[in-house]
Nucleic acid binder design. Structure first.
Lengths: 192, 192
DNA sequence: ATGAATCGTTCACTTAAGTTAAGAAATGGC
DNA sequence: GCCATTTCTTAACTTAAGTGAACGATTCAT
């Protein structure tokens, strides 16, 4: 498990044994059951999540309806906006599956950052990379139709379509569950 | 003009006179004419832009059609994804109006970062804040209809609706110019 | 100032998503 | 295993966006 983390980190900076030990000693590995709510609307939090195994999602509850806006799977990280903005959360975070997560908090990060400036560089690079990824995702979303977005998802994250409930996928694609169901039926028609 | 920049920076870190001078000496203030293309599809670039005055936009050309995905106005910064990923750009960046821009490049930033660690902290905080802002924007986009998105834009960036051509606004809202035109007519009907 | 190109609106028509409702299928708890 | 709940699909109908085309209005270049 630890190796997975350090392999990931090594893409950004190289750590000494001392630095690795400092991270391990923080005791941030957690097993979390499917359905667990990690963050609720209205709550304040300092926690960030890194998914080692499993899948978590963020969702809003608008007019009593869940609107799923993001999924995070293996090797993906989520720092909720409420953590960055220091405001109550506008959305929920919960586990789509049983998960092994790395859960850190702002204070721990600040401590590590001051001890190891290298770590701050990593965080900056990581934030910038995420910013670029998210920008591309947003642009693709804006410039394509629901059908194209679904096909795009099948290409890029085929696992998601399998492991996540349809109605959650639907709002992730910006449409209603019925529309996703119909859209899929339409695509099957076309193929044959 | 310099004061505008330093007021902005002071939201993240406090700079000494020495540090301010180091920044000014980089000679990064530029006037750019409306219509100027700052970055073309396929180009590699190391340049980032901070808008002191005016408006710039990013757009793709897909099937010969321009798809505008973002606008940056006063006090907003753009680091194109191609700069972060070190890949050829997938989109264009151009000036919607005459602009006064602060144009920096990766090498300059690296130099300043190593001289003043404080600067790297600022970049990290800034990237994180942008990440949170963009996440919220994306979530709002996903969870709302074109009409809601337009009304939302009227609330949050009323200036954009005035200063930017309709057909650019339309793709920014994820629809066709005709649809935006119709949507606006529909809203006027409703009001009366 | 004038002609050319671009831009915004309107219209008729097509296509697809939203809505409401019903029922089948899958899942979870006991 | 069985019931209750949730999830997925289907269908009929409504609403709004996409498409193609036409026509002023505006902008731009010379």
């Amino acid at each position: 498990m630890k190796n997975i983390l350090f392999d990931f980190i090594s893409k950004y900076v190289s750590l000494t044994e001392e630095e690795k030990n400092a991270i391990v000693s923080l005791d941030i590995f957690h097993s979390v059951k499917k359905g667990t709510i990690l963050l609720k609307e209205g709550e304040k939090s300092k926690a960030s999540y890194f998914v080692l195994k499993g899948c978590i999602r963020t969702y809003y509850v608008l007019d009593g309806e869940e609107k799923t806006t993001a999924f995070y799977t293996e090797m993906e990280a989520l720092t909720p906006t409420c953590v960055i903005n220091k405001t109550p959360s506008e959305y929920y975070v919960s586990c789509v599956e049983d998960c092994i997560l790395l859960i850190s908090n702002t204070d721990m990060e600040a401590e590590i950052n001051s001890k190891f400036p290298k770590f701050e560089t990593m965080c900056r690079l990581f934030a910038e990379e995420l910013l670029a990824k998210q920008r591309i995702d947003f642009d693709e979303f804006k410039t394509s139709s629901p059908e194209q977005r679904y096909l795009n998802l099948l290409q890029k994250r085929p696992d998601l379509v399998q492991r996540v409930p349809q109605h959650q996928l639907a709002s992730y694609l910006g449409i209603k569950p019925q529309s996703l169901s119909r859209l899929r039926a339409r695509l099957l028609e076309k193929k044959s």
